[in-house]
């Protein structure tokens, strides 16, 4: 059987299993986003509308994208880890791995959960923008619309990368362990670009920000701001994106291998142990 067919089957199962939860979460998020805009509109009616300059709008977009992406990655990451750990916990994985490579199982699972998480954000932000447009809550300067596209692209990149990172970590969780413990180190890594990038919202380009925007694990949070505000040179963007894509693929391979090594052992597995026991699993 072709690998893509296995991946699609796994994705299909995830979608069906998560359909209900997805609908509820999306609906709640969309209502919250739209409600927020309605309230903002009511406030604007009494206090007068704020009109932003283009650079102010870019600054705001940069900061907001960091916060939103950070929250989305961390929350979806938990769900991914739980999903990966669940399969190990129920031991069903031994039967599934008789039919496909661990890498393909993980890719399908992580992609499906990641896509659902991504769709929730898109729906929430979409609902916010549409409501804001209807009530004319704020006006987006023309240049900022391009910035929105930039942010969306980085959103997708960052989401893919971290989905795989959380997937790899989830494969190491012991059957009865809380996934939050295993997520902690990853969340800490994410906090660094989060704070550095937010701190730079009021200032210009800094060396720290520049470095973080080139390192694959921090680039998704740091590069969008630099791009939106015109700090990033084209070669920096290209290098940064390429590194993120390569790293994402690397994590698929790594996670697949760790999963293969960890899944066949009952309890908690250390990274090195999993790596070794996987060997060159076929």
């Amino acid at each position: 059987m072709k690998p893509w067919r296995s991946v699609l089957l796994v994705m299909g199962r995830e979608f069906r299993a998560r359909k209900k939860g997805f609908l509820i979460v999306s609906l709640v998020l969309m209502l919250l986003a739209a409600g927020g805009m309605v309230i903002a509109d009511a406030a604007a009616a009494t206090q007068g509308r704020a009109r932003m300059s283009s650079s102010e709008a870019d600054q705001l977009l940069g900061a907001l994208s960091v916060i939103l992406l950070f929250l989305a990655i961390v929350v979806t990451g938990q769900v991914i880890m739980e999903g990966v750990a669940e399969e190990k916990r129920s031991r069903v994985v031994e039967v599934v791995l008789g039919t496909m490579h661990p890498r393909h199982l993980l890719t399908g699972k992580v992609t499906a959960i990641g896509l659902l998480g991504f769709a929730e954000i898109v729906l929430a932000v979409g609902s916010l923008l549409v409501t804001a447009e209807i009530f004319d809550v704020f006006e987006v300067p023309k240049g900022t619309a391009l910035g929105l596209v930039t942010v969306a692209v980085w959103f997708l990149l960052g989401f893919s990368l971290y989905s795989m990172v959380y997937g790899a970590a989830g494969s190491l969780v012991a059957p009865h362990e809380n996934v939050a413990n295993a997520a902690f180190p990853i969340n800490i890594v994410l906090l660094i670009p989060y704070f550095v990038t937010l701190a730079s919202a009021g200032t210009g380009d800094t060396v720290a920000l520049r470095v973080l925007s080139l390192v694959p694990l921090t680039a998704p949070l740091s590069m969008p701001t630099r791009m939106v505000r015109g700090f990033a040179a084209p070669w920096e963007v290209a290098v940064s994106m390429a590194l993120v894509v390569v790293t994402t693929y690397g994590f698929i391979r790594l996670a697949g291998r760790l999963y293969a090594g960890a899944v066949m052992q009952g309890g908690k597995v250390r990274w090195r142990q999993a790596w070794r026991s996987a060997g060159d699993m076929r």
Partner: peptide, 18 residues
């Protein structure tokens, strides 16, 4: 190999399904 396994059936010691 993987294509052969598709024609095999397996019931592991530690039972597990979804």
């Amino acid at each position: 190999d993987r294509s052969t396994w598709l024609g095999f059936g397996y019931m592991p010691e530690e039972r597990g399904l979804y």
